[in-house]
Amino acid sequence: MFKGLKLTDILVTIVISIGFGILYKIWGPLYYAVKPLGLHLDQLIYGMWFIAATVAFLIIRKPGIALLAEIAASSGEFLMGSEFGLEVLFYGLVQGLFAELVLMAFRYKRFDLLVVSIAGISSCIGSLILDFYKGYVGDLSTWNLILYIGFRFIGSILFTGVLAVAIVKALEATGVTKLVRSSSQKDHEALNQ
């Protein structure tokens, strides 16, 4: 799947993802600060953890980017000594994989809010599966579990979908994304004018 990625694609993906890793590192303590409230308000900002995948994909628009981005973001966070320790790597891997599968299902041809939101929801499902094993969340009382899952879904759509699209749109306006997108046939034809 990664065969087609050029060095520029990979390096740009990893650098921006590690940039997000830095943001996650700032995000982590905030997450734990709201967590003890117990009512799972923390889950509303959980979606921030999936954003590297969709932002990188929307910028570079190639297969494998979403997965690579999540792995890179979590490695960056891990190597900086995250409070979450090793689990970030596993979560990153699973979340990236789940997002990638959605993008693949749309054959990497759609770059709109709907598709990236679904990718975000998919990442969210991936993280929940891990939570069931790791955090026994199934053993929460039912109303509490619903709150937990509901908040996380909403957060995923807000961050991985809406915010990611907004960020990339603003980036496109700066013109910097042109660097990493392939030149079009039209440009090649213009050379013969």
């Binding site: 740009v12 940039g19 980036l171």
Partner: peptide, 8 residues
């Protein structure tokens, strides 16, 4: 991000 993309 734009600085990072250019730098990368």
């Amino acid at each position: 991000l734009s600085q990072s993309i250019r730098r990368a």
